[in-house]
């Protein structure tokens, strides 16, 4: 199964998103990397690396981020990791996490998930 990592400035938010995703996909390998080691707001290089490591398999890992430094710090972790089966996906965090978790349990590949997430970005919540 493709592993999933949720990166956020807020530990609570990252953990909450993981909880929400697990409600529909209990077995999904998904980990939170939220906040700094001391519990403060921010993004932590070490937490992101550890979270990726914790859900890593040959199937690869999809990393979903909130904004700003979450994106930049993840970028640096991935540059150092040098593994092409660990990718950042660009999507709304909650919707993307739920979709990724469901698809991961369904056995999707990382490349196919990348495409699914891109499609999902176009889905609207309201008709207008």
């Amino acid at each position: 199964m493709v592993g999933i990592v949720i990166v956020s400035h807020s530990q609570k938010l990252a953990e909450g998103v993981v909880e929400l995703a697990r409600m529909m996909a209990a077995e999904a390998p998904i980990a939170a990397a939220g906040g700094l080691d001391d519990g403060n707001f921010g993004t932590s290089y070490e937490k992101i690396s550890a979270a990726i490591e914790s859900v890593y398999s040959a199937d690869g890992v999809a990393v979903l981020m909130d904004m700003g430094s979450a994106v930049m710090t993840t970028e640096m972790v991935l540059e150092d990791l040098e593994r092409d089966n660990v990718k950042m996906l660009d999507c709304p965090l909650v919707e993307g996490a739920v979709l990724a978790a469901v698809e991961s349990v369904g056995g999707i590949s990382l490349d196919a998930l990348t495409e699914r997430i891109a499609e999902a970005r176009a889905v609207k919540k309201l008709d207008n």
Partner: peptide, 15 residues
């Protein structure tokens, strides 16, 4: 700096 700053200035000044 990358491992300790936490905000955008961490990866920016770190890089």
């Amino acid at each position: 700096l990358v491992s300790t700053v936490g905000g955008a200035s961490g990866p920016l000044y770190g890089t």
